[in-house]
């Protein structure tokens, strides 16, 4: 009687596992499972992800198939009997997975991931430099203006409504700095190097469509590099909990054609001009 009930359980569980495997794998074909990508390194990130999907998917599928097969074969009626494996087989079953896992995962991170990672953190000399400042719960971007220099940000001059970056009116570098609340403007196809800072707590500059994510840490300037590849308007969402307003700490990256970007930049006046 026990064996019969066991057979039911074996079939149930193994069909469930196979169903779960099919559904999980099938979901990749049915669901729109990632946002479109609009940056150069973003394609690399996606390449990396695709590689892991295949590697991990292989383990996932094989593992579940083996498990389900074993359940049916060795569950229920007692047909099989235990005989210890030989030492050699046992070592094979140990060294095999070790070599496989290390090779697959390290190859991926070194061959595909590494170069992309470097791309994100290498400042190229002709990059457009954009300064991003985060505060509860806003993104403020800044461009250096005509002189190409950023003015110093002074905490003592901070005023939410009047001077959210704490710029000094008397500082000639700061005078023509262009400050934009809640939006970033970028020319398409050109590298942009971001200096990211925060006034108060941790935030994270997260633009999923550009595959960009970099924490804003008070007291520290962090960097990331983006080369947008498509004109469009992409949402920034904060990705590091920063308080109750975390969920609505939004902003937009407006990627424009080079001409449109130049036009936009020209139309801007400095914060103290």
């Amino acid at each position: 009687m026990r064996s019969q009930r066991g057979a039911v359980s074996a079939w149930l569980l193994s069909s469930l596992l196979i169903l779960a495997t099919i559904l999980t794998v099938g979901a990749f074909f049915v669901l729109k499972w990632r946002p479109e990508v609009a940056s150069e390194h973003g394609r690399g990130v996606d390449r990396m992800i695709t590689y892991i999907i295949f590697a991990a998917g292989f383990i996932f599928v094989v593992g579940h198939l083996v498990l389900s097969t074993f359940l049916v074969k060795f569950g229920g009626k007692g047909t099989a009997a235990y005989k210890p494996m030989t030492h050699k087989t046992e070592m094979l079953f140990t060294i095999g997975p070790v070599v496989f896992m290390v090779a697959v995962s390290e190859l991926g991170v070194l061959a595909i991931g590494g170069p992309v990672w470097n791309q994100v953190y290498t400042h190229k000399p002709d990059d457009l430099v954009v300064d991003i400042t985060a505060k509860q719960y806003e993104w403020i971007s800044r461009y250096p203006g005509k002189d190409g220099k950023f003015g110093r940000k002074r905490p003592d001059l901070f005023d939410d409504q009047e001077n959210p970056l704490g710029l000094d009116r008397k500082d000639p570098d700061a005078k023509d700095d262009i400050v934009v609340r809640g939006a970033v403007y970028l020319p398409v196809g050109k590298g942009a190097w971001f200096n990211i800072q925060s006034w108060d707590v941790l935030h994270s500059f997260n633009v999923p469509v550009l595959r960009a994510k970099q924490d804003a840490v008070p007291g520290l300037t962090t960097h990331t590099r983006i080369v947008p590849t498509a004109v469009g308007r992409y949402e920034i969402s904060c990705a590091e909990i920063c308080g109750p307003g975390h969920y609505r700490m939004r902003g937009f990256v407006n990627v424009k054609s080079e001409a449109d970007f130049a036009k936009w930049l020209k139309s801007q006046v400095g914060w103290f001009e």
Partner: peptide
């Protein structure tokens, strides 16, 4: 008078 962009909302 300062003009602030309200783009984020």
């Amino acid at each position: 008078e300062r003009v602030n962009s309200a783009e984020a909302d």
